[in-house]
């Protein structure tokens, strides 16, 4: 586990995190659908006294047609590219980024790896190296910059989408993979903002499953 700032004092199976992250997109769609439903229904179907109905194999997970456990019908929802869903996914990432930066810097300071960053390039290197390593067990494959505050980061095999494969063919795989990219965009924005720098992050799939992240900061260095 060399290269991991967080150390190996207490570990869990990496599959736990992978499986959990894969659930974020469907969950986000379902949350939006549920919120829409309760906003449109006249009576509140979500009273606080309602007891938790355990999820079972034949329980509809949302009002999206055919949305049963283990299925992919949720991705057919028209909500999938709505701002509500994408903002939520981005926020999952953003919140994680903000917290993760703090945790990594704490461990970095303890092991004397990092004390402070003096310029934005170092922050982006930190993203490429330590953030990516802790989340995906690998470093970013390429980092380029125009030295005017714009950075391009390339992960040639982005883990979160690398196993997506739609039954409807490759173009559908690409369309649906895109939605997953809001999560890492949020992570990067959260990390960079935690150092006090505002930025816009966008991502595109260059050659599946390679992903290019474009980061535009307001810093000119």
């Amino acid at each position: 586990m060399s290269g991991d700032l967080l150390g190996d004092k207490k570990l869990v199976n990496a599959a736990c995190l992978d499986l959990f992250l894969q659930e974020l997109v469907p969950t986000s769609i379902r949350v939006s659908q549920n919120l829409n439903d309760s906003a449109t229904s006249s009576q509140s179907s979500t009273s606080k006294e309602e007891s938790v109905e355990p999820t079972l194999i034949d329980l509809q997970l949302s009002t999206i047609k055919g949305d049963l456990p283990g299925g992919v019908e949720v991705f057919e929802s028209s909500l999938i590219f709505s701002d509500d869903v994408t903002v939520r996914i981005e926020t999952y990432g953003f919140n994680l980024g903000m917290r993760l930066a703090e945790l990594l810097m704490f461990h970095g300071a303890q092991s004397n790896t990092y004390n402070k960053f003096v310029d934005v390039l170092e922050i982006l290197k930190f993203v490429c190296r330590d953030v990516w390593w802790s989340l995906y067990g690998k470093e970013m494959d390429n980092l380029r910059t125009n030295h005017r505050g714009t950075f391009v980061l390339v992960d040639s095999n982005y883990k979160l989408i690398s196993r997506i494969n739609s039954a409807k063919g490759f173009s559908d795989t690409l369309t649906k993979s895109k939605i997953y990219l809001w999560f890492p965009c949020g992570v990067i924005r959260g990390i960079v903002l935690s150092f006090g720098i505002d930025c816009d992050v966008s991502a595109e799939i260059t050659k599946f499953p390679a992903v290019t992240f474009n980061i535009k900061t307001t810093i000119n260095n």
């Binding site: 967080l6 570990l11 869990v12 990496a14 599959a15 995190l17 993760l100 945790l103 802790s134 989340l135």
Partner: peptide, 11 residues
């Protein structure tokens, strides 16, 4: 394959 549990907790 293992990861630090704090990261998982945080996520």
């Amino acid at each position: 394959e293992k990861i630090n549990s704090e990261l998982f907790t945080l996520t």
